[in-house]
Amino acid sequence: MKRLNRKGEASPETYFNTVYDSTVKSLTRFVISKCGNILDAEDILQNIYARFYQRIIKKGYDDIENAEAFLISIAKFECKSYYSAQKRHSVTESFSDYTDEQMVMIENEMSKTQKNFEDILCDELLAREIFEDIANTDELTGKIFYLYFVCDMKLADIAVELDMNLSAVKNKLYRTIERQKKKFKL
């Protein structure tokens, strides 16, 4: 019988919680970069951490030197399984690039304070609708949004990460922002 002390040092659950809190951000970024659609990211993450938890319950965690690296290896396996079950869709882009001027204008606009954003975020239905509009645009746009706004990555780095050319990344980002501006009055 395994007795735990009040601090729970011996508990796999405590270890899991600690590892989870310190790795979930980087794992989410990894999964979003590798998965097909941003809407699948949560399911894949669940599987990764479930495998990890099951492993430490069964075999302990003494032999795990770097939990994040260990998780990334599980993540690679999960994403591979995920891809094998999915047909990859090639996306053909047929729109013209934004001019530099237009891009600067959009960038400037994004830095302007707008009062109704707080209200929109509080309106769960509307906020979810806006999110799903992004996620359902195509397989890449949601990922670009996440990596750009949440992970604070540069567009050039996102292009490398997603194996796209820079102008395609920019176009997807700006075109969606412009479309949402009209559609949701953002």
Binding site: F117, E118, L121, F131
Partner: peptide, 15 residues
């Protein structure tokens, strides 16, 4: 709040 912060919070909350 600006649009960058708006999208950051939106994507963080719902992804």
């Amino acid at each position: 709040m600006d649009k960058k912060e708006f999208y950051r919070q939106l994507m963080e909350s719902y992804t």
